[in-house]
Design a protein around this nucleic acid. Structure first.
Length: 510
RNA sequence: GGCCCGUUCGUCUAGGGGUCUAGGACAUCUCCCUUUCACGGAGGAAACACGGGUUCGAUUCCCGUACGGGCUACCA
């Protein structure tokens, strides 16, 4: 068998913002394709018209883009298998055709049951304590479908335009086995599988039919999706078989779920705002309610940190390496190293990842971000100065947005001074010591080292231990009790300015 | 309820019969470095769900139980 070019797809439905679990699925799908030099496609599964949400598709594309997940083919970039939106693909009649083909082959049938009739059937089965109440090989005999009804009756109904669906005719008591890349062999008896609806009464296919037709037509080689699909996978195998596509059907990989940090259960949209961390890559405003859900991007996370964190949830390289660029992830990724069990998401570790990237990031980009904050505070400073301040501040922070609170003093003289330090250390001795400091400083050089030497020799001549005055010096110049290396800070602020600050601080404090 | 999947420190995980007195990371604690905070360094506490097999030997293989999760729609 000749090796097919690897083609994977991420196929979300535009029912709202993509949440981080979805992003992870997209990421793994992408990594696998790229690892094998293949294609990654984006297909939009909008077969449920009632759940369509305005803006969701754009959100998905923007989110993937932010994460650095590049789409080779898809709704936004086109490609030889276009269109990539199922609602548009429906127009060509493909879903209808293949559903019809299944009916003709005797593997599917028309069903005319109304919602009420279905409900009644389930209620009856439940009342009779049937273990698995479902539309299947035994119950279908008593329902209104082309298996139970006479041919005449069926034709009459079709002619009359009665609404119908097409259901998969799942055989009785047959063993269905399939190989999952992550889980190995999974075996299910067909009695557990219900007669899934393939084509809805509005003419739209369900997910079950649509994803198979599209994966086949788009020559997808590996179908990656969440574990929640595992129970319906046997039905999908059957559909491939009945369509005659089993030989080329994609290999399935069912990813473990992302679980909420506290308690149990899969991570849901609500958890984020409840627990104080984002579950979405980007901010999302619900078009119906106006409600805003926060995103990692707006919270100040680097996309690289977000992606890195996500990659290590349910996958590991088998080494101790934790920091990965996208290229490194592509190189290292394999489904063999994806775990089977669900992973609880840890917001704390996510912060740690951002901190690591804050250290690694090019200073120019950090400065770009910080300058936005500075603008908001109506502060302007020359670029070189901002970059130097960033160099000092990045060692103290997890996020760029902390810089202002941490180091506004680089851009303006403080007007409050750390009370704890002042009340504890600002005594008569300190007062007289600092009174003489400006003159001494003026004589020193401008570098951090010279400033420090000057300070120490002044302390010595004053008969005071230099160390005992250092924190006060910091408070007088910056207002804060802690910060980056003190003389580096002073050198950056500048000797003149620092001297001025010491003098005005002394005034304010007396 | 039924079916499917899973189960190593609080969390993410390494481990595929002896090398496990179970390794790493986050978080936590102690100490060192530091004027300080952070970083960094050193160290500590912390896990194989339980019960049966298989085997000379099980964290590793099999079965059961428990627990957790998922699915059970003309939603994906």
């Amino acid at each position: 068998m000749s090796e097919r070019r690897v083609r994977t797809r991420f196929a979300p439905s535009p029912t709202g913002p993509l949440h981080m679990g979805g992003v992870r699925t997209a990421l793994f799908t992408y990594l696998f394709a790229k690892k094998h030099g293949g294609d990654f496609l984006l297909r939009i599964e909008d077969t449920d018209q009632t759940r369509y949400v305005q803006g969701a598709e754009e959100y998905i594309i923007e989110a993937l883009n932010w994460c650095g997940i590049h789409i080779d083919e898809g709704v936004n970039v086109g490609g030889k298998y276009a269109p990539y939106r199922q609602s548009e693909r429906k127009a060509s009649g493909i879903y209808q055709t293949y559903a019809q083909q299944l009916v003709e082959a005797g593997h599917a049938y028309y069903a005319f049951d109304t919602a009420e009739e279905l409900e009644e059937m389930r209620a009856q089965l439940a009342a009779a304590k049937v273990a698995a109440p479902q539309y299947n090989s035994v119950t279908r005999q008593n329902m209104k479908n082309s298996v139970a009804l006479s041919e005449d009756e069926v034709n009459k109904r079709l002619k009359a335009g009665d609404p119908y669906v097409i259901r998969l005719k799942v055989p009785r008591n047959e063993e269905i086995r399939f190989h999952d890349i992550i889980r190995g062999w999974v075996v299910v008896n067909s009695n557990q599988v219900d007669d899934k609806v393939l084509l809805k009464s509005d003419g739209m296919p369900t997910y079950h039919l649509a994803h198979i037709v599209d994966d086949h037509l788009m020559e997808i080689t590996h179908a990656v999706r969440g574990e929640e699909w595992l129970p319906s996978a046997p039905a999908h195998i059957l559909i491939y078989r009945y369509l005659g596509w089993e030989q080329t059907m994609p290999l399935y990989a069912h990813l473990p779920l992302l679980l909420k940090p506290d308690g149990n259960g899969k991570l849901s949209k609500r958890d984020g705002d409840r627990l104080g961390f984002p579950v979405f890559p980007l901010n999302w405003t619900d078009p119906a309610t106006g409600e805003v859900s926060s995103g990692y991007r707006e919270k100040g996370y680097f996309p690289e940190a977000f992606v890195n964190m996500l990659a290590l949830l349910g996958w590991n390289p088998g080494t101790n390496q934790e920091l990965f660029s996208m290229e490194e992830l592509i190189e290292a990724f394999s489904f063999e190293r994806v775990s089977k069990s669900g992973a609880k998401f840890d917001p704390e570790k996510t912060k740690w990842f951002n901190q690591q990237y804050l250290r690694k990031y090019p200073i120019t980009e950090i400065a770009d971000q910080f300058e936005e904050t500075l603008e908001k505070h109506n502060v302007s400073a020359n670029r070189e100065y901002v970059e130097k301040a960033c160099e000092l501040l990045r060692e103290k922070a997890h996020f760029v947005h902390e810089f202002w609170e941490l180091g506004a003093y680089f851009f303006m003289a403080p007007d409050v001074f750390d009370e704890k330090v002042i009340s504890k250390k600002w005594d008569d001795q300190a007062r007289s010591f600092f009174k003489g400091l400006p003159d001494a400083m003026k004589k020193s050089g401008n570098s951090a080292i010279e400033l420090e030497e000057g300070f120490k020799s002044y302390a010595e001549s004053a008969g005071v231990k230099a160390n005992s005055m250092l924190q006060l010096l910091r408070v007088l110049v910056t207002g804060a009790a802690s910060g980056p290396a003190l003389f580096d800070t002073i050198a950056l602020i500048g000797k003149e300015e620092s001297v001025n600050r010491v003098e005005t601080a002394i005034q304010k404090l007396s």
